[in-house]
Amino acid sequence: MSYSDKVLDHYSNPRNVGSMDKSSQDVGTGLVGAPECGDVMKLQIKVNPQTSVIEDAKFKTFGCGSAIASSSLATEWVKGKTVEEALQIKNTEIVKELSLPPVKIHCSVLAEDAIRAAIHDWKKKNGVEAKAPATAEAHQ
């Protein structure tokens, strides 16, 4: 399988690799994984408490090129957005931007999950209202 130019670009030159202090009040951390391929993805955001704007984002992904590119792109896209805006990012947009083939769609789903998990973590830390977890939804 060959990667698209954009995947290769993110893969060989990933944006925003790194980590932030997990315990910091304005940092939200999302850690997600795909059991099919064994990928694991960590995405962190730093949110301005006054404006709810995501001022910085970092990621570290262990996985295939598509998973790395998806999370790299995700950090680029969330930066400068408010958390509510970032929650609207769709995996299909990541697929389109990176021209991911069908077998790699789960990488984009993982990246969306990572964004949502990071935002959820930040909201929980800061007492921002979030709905109760929908348990077992992942299997229904």
Binding site: V32, G33, A34, P35, E36, L87, Q88, K90, N91, I105, H106, V109, E112, D113, R116, A117, H120, A130, K131, A132, P133, A134, T135, A136, E137, A138, H139, Q140
Partner: peptide
């Protein structure tokens, strides 16, 4: 059981409802 399809559907549901997706791992 269709792992990928179900995971994708759960993500879409989370986006639509604001609920938190339960991770399989």
């Amino acid at each position: 059981v269709e792992l990928e399809e179900q995971s994708k559907t759960a993500t879409e549901k989370a986006r639509a409802t604001g609920e938190v997706k339960k991770q399989v791992v």
